Amino acid sequence: MAEEVLPVGEALRGLHDDGFIPLRGLLDAAQVAEVRALIDALKPIHWDYEGLVDHYKCVFNRSPRWLPYLDPPGLIEIAEAALGADCHVIGQTAWRCHPGFIGAEMHLDYLPMALPAELLASGFELPMFLCTAQIYLDDIDADLCPTRVIPGSHRAGHAPWPDEESWCGRTAEPVLCQAGDCLLFRSELWHSGSRNLSPRTRYLLQVHYGRRMVAQKFSPYLDWRFNPEVLVACTPRQRRLLGDHQAAEYD
């Protein structure tokens, strides 16, 4: 259970105002150790790759042991409030970023619609379509490639231009946190990675949530098959997160 459970209303306000929220102590020490061990046991398949950074997609399908990390208490309630009670998971990705890793430039993940800056500055509340939870499995300091975020930049109405490193006078802030903490952010937020200047490897688990009408991103797509052991082990909520929805207009 989250060490400091953030009230859902406060969390939604943070996502609307700043574009992100921290969730402290989402995982306990035993869970952090388990996920790190699960990552160490992974082997690359399909579009996975290993090197200076190791990147593994759709890890929920590897083993039922990953399932509790699709909907940890303290996170899933916020995701459902932000994206609808019928939201689902569009990916669960594991990372290891080794010493010397070079982080991503300033970017956003997905812009559902480009809107005029004057509308976004007027108090218009932009609905959320996609959110990412980054669950840190190390104590993140300034040298261990912290994520950098620009508060409020989700209201820019566009992706950052090349070399654009600030928005409305606000520059990127590093997210420094403890193992087991989580950063939940909406897809329009400007954010970047940073270099791993330490001798340590950073372990990270991402869970990507989307509204029901946002397509699930389960590669290799046409050849995708659910692991039967995973489906048998799912709770009803986890089955819904993996796409077992009730019939609706476009089904």
Results as ranks from 00 to 15, higher is better:
residue 200 R to A: 13
residue 185 F to S: 05
residue 10 E to Y: 07
residue 42 L to N: 02
residue 195 R to H: 11
residue 118 E to K: 12
residue 63 S to R: 08
residue 8 V to Q: 10
residue 162 P to A: 11
residue 96 R to A: 02
residue 207 V to H: 02
residue 99 P to E: 04
residue 165 E to R: 15
residue 237 R to W: 06
residue 137 L to W: 06
residue 217 K to N: 15
residue 245 H to M: 09
residue 78 I to R: 02
residue 52 L to C: 12
residue 156 A to E: 07
residue 97 C to D: 03
residue 200 R to W: 08
residue 12 L to M: 15
residue 239 R to S: 13
residue 125 E to Q: 14
residue 116 P to A: 08
residue 65 R to N: 01
residue 191 H to I: 10
residue 16 H to S: 11
residue 182 C to D: 01
residue 61 N to W: 04
residue 148 R to E: 15
residue 3 E to D: 07
residue 181 D to C: 05
residue 23 L to A: 03
residue 67 L to K: 04
residue 148 R to Q: 15
residue 224 W to L: 06
residue 64 P to Y: 01
residue 111 L to A: 06
residue 29 A to D: 13
residue 135 I to D: 00
residue 218 F to Y: 15
residue 76 I to P: 01
residue 144 L to Q: 01
residue 114 A to R: 14
residue 203 Y to R: 12
residue 232 V to I: 10
residue 173 E to H: 11
residue 192 S to Q: 12
residue 126 L to M: 10
residue 56 Y to I: 02
residue 148 R to K: 15
residue 19 G to L: 04
residue 145 C to N: 13
residue 130 L to H: 09
residue 100 G to A: 14
residue 41 A to I: 08
residue 104 A to Q: 13
residue 140 I to N: 03
residue 153 S to R: 06
residue 236 P to L: 07
residue 200 R to H: 11
residue 98 H to Q: 11
residue 207 V to R: 00
residue 171 T to K: 14
residue 219 S to H: 13
residue 49 Y to H: 14
residue 41 A to W: 03
residue 117 A to F: 01
residue 243 G to F: 11
residue 215 A to H: 12
residue 184 L to M: 12
residue 10 E to D: 12
residue 65 R to W: 02
residue 110 Y to C: 13
residue 203 Y to C: 03
residue 163 D to P: 03
residue 244 D to F: 12
residue 243 G to S: 03
residue 155 R to T: 10
residue 197 L to E: 14
residue 238 Q to C: 09
residue 162 P to G: 12
residue 184 L to K: 03
residue 117 A to P: 02
residue 75 L to M: 15
residue 118 E to W: 12
residue 211 R to K: 15
residue 238 Q to E: 14
residue 91 G to W: 02
residue 118 E to F: 10
residue 228 P to F: 06
residue 136 Y to E: 09
residue 231 L to M: 14
residue 187 S to E: 00
residue 48 D to A: 06
residue 81 A to D: 08
residue 92 Q to G: 04
residue 234 C to Y: 05
residue 160 P to Y: 12
residue 202 R to W: 06
residue 121 A to Q: 12
residue 188 E to F: 02
residue 94 A to S: 14
residue 126 L to E: 11
residue 145 C to W: 02
residue 90 I to W: 03
residue 127 P to I: 06
residue 74 G to K: 03
residue 27 L to W: 01
residue 57 K to I: 07
residue 179 A to M: 05
residue 95 W to E: 09
residue 127 P to E: 11
residue 116 P to C: 09
residue 31 Q to V: 06
residue 135 I to N: 01
residue 185 F to C: 03
residue 204 L to H: 00
residue 80 E to A: 14
residue 132 T to C: 07
residue 80 E to T: 13
residue 148 R to I: 09
residue 155 R to A: 08
